[in-house]
């Protein structure tokens, strides 16, 4: 299992590198789709069918929106050598990456090995959750019953994002 996940993640890294370095913006957007659809396969292998259903549709809609934005433009990206500010930014980014990697090494000693999760938190959710909520799908039970506040916050964030999009894209005021 770990080998399969690693191979698919490696392909996703290749797709991401191509998306960042592509000359044509349209091919960059489509290469970004490799990453999203690779994630769907990972979710299916990791026994998360709910997430796979959501991700495969969300990725398609994201692709449609990005293509709609890119198709109007000249689609060319002009590469040029980094100026002074760019060099400073790249050096800062390198330092950030090294620091993050150091902390990741420290933290990974406390992570469980893949496939041997110790379920510290979820034991209460798994045992008896079906009787407490009456829902056979444990993910739905946790989303709407144990963590209802979380879901309500998500709904409010969605409404706020839609209001933001409507405000930005409105050219003429409504009568």
């Amino acid at each position: 299992m770990e080998v399969a996940i690693s191979i698919i993640t490696g392909l996703m890294i290749l797709g991401a590198l191509f998306a960042i370095h592509a000359k044509d913006l349209l091919s960059a957007v489509i290469a970004c789709g490799i990453v999203g659809y690779g994630l769907v396969i990972c979710f299916l292998l990791l026994k998360a069918p709910d997430l796979a259903i959501v991700q495969i549709v969300v990725d398609t809609i994201t692709l449609i929106m990005m293509v709609a934005v890119v198709l109007d433009s000249s689609r060319e990206e002009s590469f040029s050598r980094l100026d002074t500010f760019g060099k400073i930014a790249a050096a800062t980014g390198l330092i950030i990456i090294v620091v993050l990697f150091y902390f990741f090494i420290i933290a990974s000693s406390n992570l469980d090995v893949l496939g041997k999760s110790s379920l510290r938190m979820a034991n209460a959710y798994i045992h008896g959750a079906a009787q407490k909520t009456g829902s056979a799908n444990l993910v739905t039970g946790v989303v709407f019953d144990f963590r209802g506040y979380d879901t309500m916050g998500e709904a409010v964030v969605l409404v706020t994002a839609v209001l933001g999009v409507l405000t930005i894209l409105r050219l003429k005021g409504k009568k």
Binding site: V54, I61, T62, Y125, R147
Partner: peptide, 21 residues
Amino acid sequence: DPLPQTLVLTAIVIGLATTAL
């Protein structure tokens, strides 16, 4: 474990909204 799946489920839809913004 259903808990991380729950957290990701809401995060995916929020990710769609922020990308649209």
